[in-house]
Write a protein that binds this DNA or RNA. Structure first.
Lengths: 214, 214
DNA sequence: TCTCGAATAGGGTGTGGACCTCATGCGGGA
DNA sequence: TCCCGCATGAGGTCCACACCCTATTCGAGA
């Protein structure tokens, strides 16, 4: 559990083996980095974090079993000194700012050049944080980042699952009329005028799990 | 343009640099393979195919500028001897069977183990085709692969864009009533009962572009 | 030739939901 | 203290659409 100044331990978590291979490639070119594990899903990632307390963990946003945000929470709880950096394919402003406010130490797009990833990873290992250039740009010119309340997010999620107002009402133990009201405010905020647009928006903004069923 | 028996040229096309790095890793471990280019979007991929006529091209399904399916068509046209294999993150039965019927030489999930990718790549380079194990399973137990007609696909796409029946009718120059009918048959086929479910289904099945806006 | 499915179009009915206003209770900040 | 925003709830209106029919045209295949 003790680690020397020279050696930094890293766990790579991503459900795509190809991506893990790429990250391994990039990370192993850094001085003093030793990759001690690869996790293919959220639960494995949590287990590795708990057991090995690595210096750093790279985290994919959309993993099966347990999504990235939950993994972040668990790792923070069980291994608070582990630097967590997220490597995501999603470019939606919503999810990116969610990650930032969740307090990750690094945030990268999968489209980042290896050089930038190397640069970022070594800074994070050195103790500072890193926000990838493209992401900084995206977050900067976030026109009107719509702020949704907790309830509105819940309602939105249920709507994208295809539930009717009545069903959502029952699920959340509130009146169907209240669901209707939240929904109206939601659509007004997002500037959409139909369920279809609402669902399309939610899915594009990554408020739902990415497409997978295997 | 002439290539020896021993040397096989490969172009890697993927918008994620990390994935390219991983694929480069895996491919370069194969005997006699030389990677002659990396494309970060569809147009670059087409250009590489045209110019270098590589032995093989690995293709990402969802690239910006020009999607994988279009790239496949162009590569087939300009470089018919190039073996094309698709490496996709999407696990939806619909898109996978689309790829297969489009006649790609290889089909892999990004979650494939490096060993299986190596195996598949070398078979493809040797002249045969390869369908990754997980994909074969997915396609095998495709319960009732819903067959949609061309018109139904068009309608579905417009619906996911948030257009109303009237708007779709105008766009396709048909009667709103016809749109309604197609839509009803569509929902019956897919076993859904609301716009929300319809849109969710379409997006999950990858009938729309993946989430990106950068 | 006859049949079948796809695409087109219309009739009709009932309901879900988009959008409006109004009201209450609660917690936080000025 | 007052006010504002959030969550809750309810009234009502109106249109889109989900779902039920029938019918015609056309091309493919038995």
């Amino acid at each position: 559990m003790h680690r020397s100044e020279a050696e930094r331990t890293v766990v790579i978590a991503d459900d795509h083996a190809v991506v893990r291979s790429g990250l391994r490639n990039i990370l192993s070119s850094l001085q003093g980095v030793r990759i001690i594990g690869e996790a293919a899903n959220g639960l494995e990632a949590i287990a590795y974090g708990k057991r090995y307390q690595p210096s750093m963990m790279t985290l994919d946003a959309g993993m099966p079993m347990c999504n990235g945000m939950e993994v972040l929470g668990e790792v923070r709880r069980w291994s608070p000194r582990t630097r967590v950096c997220v490597v995501t394919g999603f470019t939606s402003v919503g999810s990116l700012s969610d990650w930032r406010s969740a307090g990750v130490d690094g945030l990268f797009l999968k489209s980042s050049e290896p050089a930038e990833l190397r640069e970022g990873f070594s800074r994070i290992l050195a103790g500072s944080t890193y926000l990838q250039h493209d992401i900084r740009c995206l977050l900067d010119d976030r026109q009107q980042v719509v702020e949704l309340t907790l309830r509105e997010r819940q309602i939105l999620h249920q709507v994208t699952l295809g539930l009717s107002n009545a069903e959502i009402a029952e699920k959340l133990s509130i009146s169907p009329k209240t669901v209707d009201n939240h929904r109206s405010r939601l659509m007004a905020k997002l500037g959409v005028h139909s369920v279809a647009q609402l669902v399309a928006y939610a899915l594009k903004e990554g408020l739902l799990e990415p497409a997978r069923q295997a």
